[in-house]
Design a protein around this nucleic acid. Structure first.
Length: 573
RNA sequence: CGGGGCGUAGCGCAGCCUGGCAGCGCACCUGCCUUGGGAGCAGGGGGUCGCUGGUUCAAAUCCAGUCGCCCCGACCA
């Protein structure tokens, strides 16, 4: 492809609206343009990167035995009413009516459609298992789209669904997809981690997220540097082997703490560490008040609490609610004499003999509170989030916290949809059963953004060769030197015959602009053809990732190029 | 949903407070010159100042409404 006849409008300045580096660079490099909030057009270069990512996803899905289909983006409301999600899904589901006043939505996911597709056809265990997927544009009306392609409203997603006759089959399908995902992200050249994820109401450990590691990730994950353990912070288990405190605690005593509300303030005021205090958090779980106690230096994990309680709705109580329950303004809640039936303490509180906490009385805290003696505890549980330095549940090593971009999610669904939508088959014994489902998503357009987040420098993008829009750029610096121009064209043609996807920068631009654009667009291999090199019989080559420059002889160029390319590719592995 | 900010040429911005010719840089067009890390000179084209209404002799500027975009927050005692 010749850049002189291409469309890749680059920008010298960062777009004002962009906040994260992938958004800035993809826009500046002429790869995407925003149409409206959270909705983007892919320009030729951006589309090439997107298509390359999709191709790898497709190849590995096919290899794993999944069958590609393409379902409609527009879905009728009736299907969603069958599973109850029309009412439950909320405002993320973009709804509209057709001319006959019938309800429709733009598909944010396709469980209903795919289940409907198969329920009429699959009637026998002999027709199972089945695994279908599609790569398609999805729409989710996010509360607040942000970060460019990372959290858009319209995005390209690979969504796959497996159907099995029994648990063993469903588990095998899950494992097959897990393995395929590993291959996909490895081939994409991304540094990633598969982590255990919260599986919500369905339970079990059958949910993994695939996270691309990047500082700007929206999720926090706990990863073990030694073994393969990794988990989303929402889910990561806290290892606690602390013994129950024994001995006699001193007498409970009130302390006046006027206007001292936060843990930091209490710690400073009483001159103690935050780990000697616990906080009392009031929640409303399915309409009932629940109190949770965690150490002052810890963070409550609402997902853990919700799962532990088996609640379907959980929210922190509003300040008025706190006042009603404790009889004191927010900031002074405590479990002693608290008018709440259910009080759980984080497991590590068992090790403390005497605690400081709120007194349920304005401007007052309590000292020397003993949980066993003074509090009507319902029990202990793992309620806090993992923190830096906690031990790995797998091997005992200290965990590190890292940021990740969720690019894939594998999930065992069970029979939630097959039951409500009557996707039933007859098993070997003639018994009618619902199919066991799994669903598997990959954010294809998000992969493009994640790749840039993970691979860039101050000059632009560093595309992994696997998804670079073109692998090589030939920068033609010939100017008016016709012989040099011919040489640049010749090199370009030669690369094409070597099956290297190449772009020739033959634009009538000054050298500086061409170098800047080549760096910005991030092609892994840069070849500079100009009078300076040609006079010495060489083409200059730059590895975009490392910046290392080499010289390739014009005589015997093909062999020298291939050797150089292989070393650059190796550097990416 | 709550709070904040911003809408002026393709992009980035100034002008608005204190009403009076619509500007700057980049990009674009023409010419000269230049050609190895976003050159220089000269000339030029391009904007219903988001939209609607109001105040005024006069509105980008003041007022009201409305639409759009961006950021933060949505309760950690």
């Amino acid at each position: 492809m010749k850049l002189s006849a291409y469309y890749a409008p680059t920008l010298k300045e960062d777009p004002a609206e962009a906040d994260v580096v992938s958004h800035k660079l993809l826009t500046r490099a002429g790869m995407i343009r925003k149409l409206t909030s959270g909705i983007y057009t892919f320009l030729p270069l951006g589309l090439r990167a997107l298509n390359k990512a999709a191709k790898i996803v497709r190849e590995e899905m096919d290899r794993a035995g999944a069958l590609e289909i393409l379902m409609p983006a527009v879905q009728p409301a009736d299907l969603w009413r069958e599973t109850g999600r029309w009412e439950v899904y909320g405002k993320e589901l973009l709804r509209f009516k057709d001319r006959h006043d019938r309800d429709y939505c733009l598909g944010p996911t396709h469980e209903e459609v795919v289940t409907d597709l198969l329920r009429g056809e699959i009637k026998s265990y002999r027709q199972l298992p089945l695994n279908v997927y599609q790569i398609q544009t999805k729409f989710r009306d996010e509360i607040r789209p942000r970060f460019g392609l990372m959290r858009g409203r319209e995005f390209v997603m690979k969504d796959g669904y497996s159907f099995d006759k029994d648990e063993d089959g469903a588990n095998a399908a899950y494992q097959a997809m897990y393995a395929a995902y590993g291959r996909i992200f490895t081939r994409l050249g991304l540094e990633f981690r598969a982590v255990e994820a919260d599986s919500g109401a369905i339970g079990g450990s059958f949910s993994h997220e695939f996270m691309v590691l990047a500082e700007t990730g929206e999720d926090t994950i706990a990863a073990c540097p030694k073994c393969s353990y990794g988990a989303n912070l929402e889910k990561a288990q806290v290892m606690c082997a602390l013994p129950m405190a024994s001995g006699d605690a001193g007498k409970v005593e009130e302390v006046a703490t006027p206007g001292v509300k936060t843990i930091a303030e209490v710690a400073a005021f009483l001159n103690v560490g935050p780990e000697e205090i616990f906080k009392t958090l009031l929640f409303i779980a399915d309409g009932k008040r629940v109190a949770a106690l965690v150490r002052g230096d810890r963070d409550i994990n609402e997902v853990k609490l919700k799962n532990f309680l088996g609640a379907s709705e959980l929210a922190l109580a509003a300040p008025e609610e706190v006042e009603a329950a404790t009889g004191a303004p927010a900031g002074f809640a405590g479990p002693v004499g608290l008018g709440v039936d259910t009080i759980y303490a984080d497991q590590e509180l068992c090790a403390g003999l005497e605690w400081i906490c709120g007194a349920n009385k304005a401007d007052t805290h309590l000292r020397r509170v003993n949980l066993k003696r003074d509090v009507g505890l319902t029990g202990f549980a793992d309620l806090r989030s993992v923190a830096e330095g906690d031990r790995c549940p797998g091997c005992g090593e200290q965990l590190t916290l890292r940021r990740g971009i969720e690019v894939g999610h594998v999930f065992k669904l069970g029979t939630k949809y097959s039951e409500s939508m009557k996707a039933l088959f007859l098993d070997e014994t003639g018994v009618e059963r619902p199919m066991i489902m799994g669903c598997y998503g990959i954010g294809v357009s998000r992969i493009v953004a994640a790749a840039v987040e993970q691979n860039h420098d101050e000059n632009g993008i560093l595309w992994p060769p696997s998804i670079a829009p073109f692998e090589a750029v030939v920068v033609d610096l010939s100017g008016k030197d016709e012989a040099a121009k011919a040489k640049a064209a010749e090199i370009y043609e030669m690369l094409k015959t070597l099956d290297v996807e190449t772009v020739l920068d033959d634009r009538d631009e000054r050298p500086g602009s061409k170098f800047k654009d080549a760096d910005l667009m991030g092609f892994p291999l840069q070849l500079v053809v100009g009078g300076k090199g040609l006079s010495r019989g060489v083409v200059e080559a730059k590895d975009r990732r490392t910046g290392v420059k080499s010289e390739l002889p014009v005589e015997g160029f093909a062999a020298a190029f291939e050797a150089w390319r292989d070393t650059v590719r190796k550097g990416w592995e």
